[in-house]
């Protein structure tokens, strides 16, 4: 196959179809973000999201979020059929605005965490997690 303009366009269309599903999921994630922030701008510092670069299994992926001074942290898996993962609300006796949990990821995707700070501002962190396909179904 030679790379003619027409072939390139066909390949482009194929790629669009192939990525149709994740794009829909991302739109759902954006809706959740808008609902959480009310459309406010998000700083890109002040929150840390720790997740593995490569997850051994998408069924059980350990993550940690930390945002000093946050009242609430929303976690989304943008590539899941439904993006919601968890919302952590920190009370007066939380020693730090940090939490860890284990989550399900349907495939390689961005995990996003957004903190709502006590002054009403927002901060966002994102981490790409590669989910491997097992060798043996065993």
């Amino acid at each position: 196959m030679t790379l003619t303009r027409r072939n390139v366009m066909i390949m482009g269309a194929g790629a669009f179809v192939a990525f149709g599903l994740p794009m829909r999921a991302t739109a759902a994630a954006e809706d959740r973000i808008a609902e959480f922030t009310g459309g406010a701008a998000m700083a890109d510092s002040g929150i840390t999201l720790t997740a593995p670069e490569i997850a051994e299994n998408g069924n059980t992926v350990p993550i940690e979020v930390a945002a000093p001074g946050a009242v609430e942290i929303l976690v989304l898996a943008t590539g899941n059929p439904t993006p919601g993962v968890a919302t952590f609300k920190f009370g007066p006796l939380a020693a730090s605005q940090t939490a860890s949990t284990r989550i399900r990821l349907a495939g390689t995707q961005d995990v996003v965490a957004i903190a709502k700070m006590s002054d009403g501002s927002f901060a966002k962190a994102s981490s790409n997690v590669k989910v491997t396909i097992g060798g043996c179904g065993g």
């Binding site: 992926v61 899941n80 993962v85 952590f88 609300k89 939380a94 939490a99 949990t101 990821l105």
Partner: peptide
Amino acid sequence: SVVDVTMEPAISTNPYIEFA
């Protein structure tokens, strides 16, 4: 209150939560 967590279906089987 220490923490109040809303959990969705993306939380793994046998849910684990750690905090301070």
